[in-house]
Amino acid sequence: MTELEQALVALGREVEFPPTPDLAGAVRARIDRRARARRWLVLALAVLVVGIGIAMAVPDARSAILRFFHVGSVKVERVDTLPAAREAPLTAGLGTPRTRAEAERRAGFRMILPKFKGAPPSRYYALNGLIATVIRSGSTPLLLTELRGDQAWLGKKIVDPQTKVEGVSVGSHGGLFLSGGRHVLMYQISPSDVGQLFPRFAGNVLLWTARDRTFRLEGEVSRDEALRLGRLITG
């Protein structure tokens, strides 16, 4: 190194640089937010159909869409007038009850089901990419639905203005809890058959994603109890 270069190095030690800000904290906060947003995105793709296909098939909803909730990339449609729906049993529209093995064959995947206290469920319902069964919280029946992660066309939530939609964490997994008001659950039998819908009013609902699956727990259940059960199911 020449004398001039040594002089430049010495000069560099005397040059004023502004103090380095705490970038580590700011960057960590941003990548943490991004990770949460990605979990929401998976959830959106898996359960809450953001395309307009189903909504366009329901005239009441089509005319009355007011705005969207944006949670990350998730959109939950809030409307002032719910589409025509009816009170119906939790398993309405899900077809014939089957054994677990039969349901898994029909759905095309094996269900992740934890060991609950007491006897395991005996009735399962299946559509392509979806398995559902009824579990109990005390004496309260709850519909547990498991969807393969890529089944983005299967379900949609349309909520009225009184429905509370909040982001929650189920263990380390992101999710949504819908409560109060009324919201309508619709199933679509196939992507090409948008007319065959089974709209019904739904109870409180916890939605979350884990292990490339989407889980849905519905019934007269509190947020805390739903989260407890969610953690039991997917850890």
Binding site: L23, A24, V27, R28, D32, A35
Partner: peptide, 12 residues
């Protein structure tokens, strides 16, 4: 994330 935070801290 923790590992990346350490890298950020080292190179900020």
């Amino acid at each position: 994330h923790e590992a990346y935070s350490e890298l950020v801290h080292a190179y900020q």
